[in-house]
């Protein structure tokens, strides 16, 4: 278990942030503000500072995380108990803070792009971006099946009784709420307000595919995790829950970040729309 927690520290506070940092650095190096001014509404040094702070925050998280795990080992605390289930989750929540900051700053960045865009020309692709248009049928069916399957499995553990606010009821409620929130967020991303005013429609489609795939995996992971947790609970195997939790945290972080990064490769993005001479989209 200690090893799994160390791996979680390395993955979430070192490896994945390094991937993101490398990508941010590549963008500003290969597509500098001098050539692509429309991509950078703020001063160049602000981006460099932000990248450095992001890396520093993650390195600090990594050191603190490793220190906590070593501390638990030294004090001989047995983390293979049900009430330690929240330790990997707590670590996960803290470790994700820098990535959440990046997400939030991305929305601010896009808002600044929209405010600076004065072009009267607007372009859109004539390709439908419904959920079923963007992912393989197998993944879509898997998403529905995992959602329904999780509810059936949880109901089965409660002999299909579903006592109001009982464990099974709460678990199903979480599965339903998480899937609905995921679906609404996806719908907003796919057909909501245009975030990047310059983005090439082809890039928008590619990004939509990557995000849809990523969110589908995430929803499947939530459903499977909740069902398995419930099964462990009724079979008195709660000691496995911390292990399951750290696996879950690592899978959702790795899956969502790498799916998006691989789905939208820098080489495929049309950066010419961010040149000064661009007519603007």
């Amino acid at each position: 278990m200690y090893l799994l927690l160390l791996i979680q520290c390395a993955l979430l506070s070192w490896y994945l942030p390094s991937l993101l940092h490398k990508r941010m650095r590549r963008v500003i190096t290969e597509y500098p503000p001098s050539d692509f001014p429309l991509l950078y509404p703020k001063e160049e040094h602000e981006y460099h500072t932000f990248h450095a702070k992001f890396l520093l925050m993650n390195r600090i998280m990594f050191v603190v995380g490793i220190a906590v795990v070593i501390g638990l080992m030294v004090w001989g605390i047995n983390v293979m108990q049900e009430h330690w289930m929240m330790l990997p989750w707590g670590m996960f929540m803290v470790q994700m803070i820098p990535i959440m900051v990046v997400e939030a700053s991305e929305f601010n960045h896009l808002k600044a792009l929209r405010e600076k865009n004065k072009s009267p020309i607007r372009v859109a692709g004539m390709q439908s971006r419904g959920i079923k248009d963007l992912v393989a049928p197998g993944l879509f069916i898997g998403w529905i099946a995992s959602f329904v399957g999780a509810i059936v499995v949880v109901a089965w553990t409660d002999n299909f009784e579903f006592a109001f606010l009982g464990d099974a009821f709460s678990t199903v409620l979480i599965v339903v709420v998480m899937n609905i929130l995921g679906y609404l967020y996806l719908r907003w991303l796919l057909s909501g307000k245009r975030l990047d005013p310059y983005q090439d429609p082809e890039d928008k489609l590619r990004y939509s595919k990557a995000v849809t795939k990523s969110l589908m995996f995430l929803s499947i992971a939530v459903s499977v995790f909740m069902a398995v947790t419930r099964v462990l609970d009724v079979n008195e195997a709660q000691y496995l829950q911390p292990v399951l939790m750290t696996f879950y945290c690592q899978i959702i972080a790795y899956g969502s970040i790498t799916t998006t990064l691989k789905g939208v490769k820098l080489e495929d993005i049309n950066f010419d729309v961010y040149r000064q001479s661009s007519q603007g989209y």
Binding site: P120, I121, R122, V123, A124, G125, M126, Q127, P201, E202, L205
Partner: peptide, 9 residues
């Protein structure tokens, strides 16, 4: 992919 362009001016 077909692209539609509108000029709001």
């Amino acid at each position: 992919m077909l692209q539609i362009m509108v000029d709001i001016d």
